[in-house]
Design a protein around this nucleic acid. Structure first.
Lengths: 148, 148
DNA sequence: TCTTGACCTAAACTTAGGTTTAGGAATTAT
DNA sequence: ATAATTCCTAAACCTAAGTTTAGGTCAAGA
């Protein structure tokens, strides 16, 4: 009578994700469920936390590949403990801190940049190369040409 | 001997954008250059500012459509003045402030959420509906099913 | 038992924000 | 005058992060 694992539908209900998204994350290597006799996926309770982690990481702005890298530091053989998760979540705090600092710098510069008339962008603070590491959304792929 | 307008290549050099991106923004309705006798685009100096505005708006996280909406408040008949730009740039400050506040809330919650064991997400702060308005990157399209 | 609802895979489709390519026409430099 | 650039359009292609569809299989309730 004991349930051996959660079905993909159960997991979808528990996490709020769609079934297709869960399958997609598996294809991307973020989660690796067992299969039952009939080839259906069976998940453990700890997979709820795994998926939740993915959602949070996405809200912070990490890509699937970055999330995969981050999660690769979880223990391989055993179910991750609270402290395992806690350890990698500290990275998030740092990432967030950087994002916040960047946006604060942008905020400080924005009036000056729009108002000042310097908008050829060549000398603009908002256009500072240190800030190019993180851009929200997609934007133009190559902002500055090599000018070779 | 006076140059009548900038070519698209000139504008690309001045803004750092690629020529294809500038044409793309035109197709999206963000900019509408004149044409010369040979059907080539000719831009005014003020278009540099227009494109710079687009770049800044993208860094703040606005989509092309949102940028188009925002720019629709610029004057139609005449070249926008410094104060026209300044006015709409104030919106950016507010948008940025909201983004920053959201990220700060996330930062405050992150340890608790990862560490606490609540990660079924159903009750998690990080999953608060007020925060769903802005998500970085794409993420799953529909997080919560209707549960109809 | 049988039927309806969940699950399976593979492949095509979606959106955003562009880039690349192909085949010409206009400019500019020599 | 001619060659080398630059520009033109249209259409195809690209990536991320999924969704949708088609054609079957599995499981659970009446």
């Amino acid at each position: 009578m004991m349930k051996r694992g959660l079905s993909i539908g159960d997991l979808a209900v528990r996490t709020g994700l769609s079934v297709s998204a869960i399958r997609f994350y598996e294809k991307k290597g973020l989660i690796s469920p067992d299969r039952n006799a009939g080839n259906q996926r069976r998940y453990e309770g700890s997979d709820i936390r795994r998926l939740s982690f993915i959602l949070i990481a996405q809200q912070i702005g990490l890509s699937i590949d970055q999330i995969k890298d981050t999660m690769s530091e979880l223990p391989e053989g055993r179910t991750p403990t609270k402290s395992d998760w806690s350890k990698i979540s500290k990275r998030f705090r740092n990432t967030l801190d950087e994002r916040i600092a960047l946006m604060q710098r942008m905020r400080e510069n924005i009036d000056g940049c729009i108002g000042c008339g310097c908008l050829s962008l060549k000398a603009c603070q908002l256009y500072n190369p240190d800030d190019k590491a993180y851009r929200l959304g997609m934007g133009p792929r190559y902002i500055i040409s090599d000018e070779r």
